[in-house]
Nucleic acid binder design. Sequence first.
DNA 1: CTGAAAGCGCTTACAG
DNA 2: CTGAAAGCGCTTACAG
Lengths: 338, 338
Amino acid sequence: MRKTGRPTSRDVAQAAGVSQSTVSIVLAGKWAGRISPGTAQSVRDAAVRLGYRPNLAARNLRLGRNRTVLLVVPTLTSMFFGGVHTGAARAAAAHGFGVVVYPWPEVTGLARSPFAAAHEAIDGILASSMAVDVLGELDPLPQVMLDSDPAGEAPTVNFDVAGGTRAVVGHLAALGHRRIGHVAASVDAWTFRARAGALAGAVRDLPAGVLTSGRTAIEIGAARTAAGRLLHRRDRPTALVCDDDLIAAGAYKAARELGLDVPADLSITGFDDMLLARAVEPELTTVRLPAEQLGAQGMAALLELLDGRRPGSVSLPVELVVRASTAPVASVNGQGVR
Amino acid sequence: MRKTGRPTSRDVAQAAGVSQSTVSIVLAGKWAGRISPGTAQSVRDAAVRLGYRPNLAARNLRLGRNRTVLLVVPTLTSMFFGGVHTGAARAAAAHGFGVVVYPWPEVTGLARSPFAAAHEAIDGILASSMAVDVLGELDPLPQVMLDSDPAGEAPTVNFDVAGGTRAVVGHLAALGHRRIGHVAASVDAWTFRARAGALAGAVRDLPAGVLTSGRTAIEIGAARTAAGRLLHRRDRPTALVCDDDLIAAGAYKAARELGLDVPADLSITGFDDMLLARAVEPELTTVRLPAEQLGAQGMAALLELLDGRRPGSVSLPVELVVRASTAPVASVNGQGVR
DNA sequence: CTGAAAGCGCTTACAG
DNA sequence: CTGAAAGCGCTTACAG
């Protein structure tokens, strides 16, 4: 009688009248040519009968690997990171790996690292959208950084946000916009720095281009305030480029407050293309960031790393999705801008 | 020389000049009165110097438990389940437990159970918003069901959606609404059945109350169509009760298409109160479902279960958040309804 | 105050 | 074709 009611391979062996090692070989599917079919079948029957499931801890200990990867994200409450998780889990599952997700520092707090918990039974780390190298110092495990500064130590998988930003500016420029306002996310992350840099460059290259900008938390109320400030300027921008769809939703509210029609009086663009983009009215022109693909490719890179190979850093193309929030700039005499 | 570069407690012991068991005792913090402070310190120093971290698989095997719980959700790409995960992870962390999340059947597919993967190193299961008992047959592990039919075997933690629905109807009734349209989610889940039942009851209790209803996938386009159908009826409802904020966003679009002003011509309510509710215009009156609390309480119940106690089923109160999408019903002669 | 030993449940050479 | 044995890295009685 064991403490736990859970049957072990030894129980199965006893029930099938064979040795424990035979059970192990049969259930691992490695019996062909080593165990007689009849014996194999009786082992399988016994396993089913007893409801046997192997003890993972024992297997992992024996094998020296866990077939599990830790995914670290800033927050769990976001469709974007949900997408990253989904893609990572799918890619992992295809290789028999599992993924455990850890928000950091949200739940653990900065003091405790995400590695203090039970999840330490991991083989590698996938970290998304982290400030540079916070993880590098914490853990020597193989790791891949997602949506992070490619200048770091670890291989990265990123979106081509610079390209996406240029596509936005190209689209706006074609509509006649020259005064662009950037409602930037006040988050210290590579992706936002890259967007700001690309935007500055693209507007600079625009004949008569003028860039103004303000920063905001990624939150509707704050975004409304920040966008409102930009819209109150004498040289009011005719288009607002927002670092996130949620910020764009705030910008919509600021526009409405000022009696500005979107897109007739003001064009607005976002970033992400989560469902928010289609929920608002008018539907939002935005840069689609394929989160699942980020997770999947990141996992693929990490799996390579675990395999002893050295994956290159990759940049995923993004797509500008044009909807109804952008339109040709209003005629010069349109709205009393000087 | 071991295969892996990772130091073990044996390495630490050797470096500190003590036995392996001493290392184990010291690092577990159980040395007081058993090991001299000096020895303890030298063990700790050696552990730090070597970058030692205990092998979880070995510890779990030895201890017969994993301190890990599996959270099963229908999808990862949802702020709601992100909230559930956050709450569960927080409650778990407080007890030294970790949680691994598994979407099911999204990633695995129905064929493979979520238990086929590495995550089998778990002690219990928290399953959210599942069709009844899909899990019961699959796994004998202790489990708690979230947002699920309380008639099942396992203890449940649910929202008081019936109460929330009644609050919605009470609010609408106070505004003079009698003709209520239910834009229901076409998802086979306890929570939606409970909402439909409560709504039917509440409208029946309303003098001159009339309920019409239609079903839709939880998706903007489909919701717009379903809501539009309700709004085209001769006895057009003056208020639309939507099973989800996203459905409400679709209803907004249907109203706009018909030239109906929200809330002057049509009141609309939702369920969830994810950020979508504040992104749309006008901001949505909705029933707030505290997802994090669901996760946290569910985890608490599961931890009790793992502790050998038998937790009762609980129903969490929900709150109606009144915003700008509901208003007094338009005067009878208002819009040619009849 | 410290160490030697058993054993958690597996997988995998190795022996027969 | 099958079994006995070693050993993965821990924790915890037990002995001294």
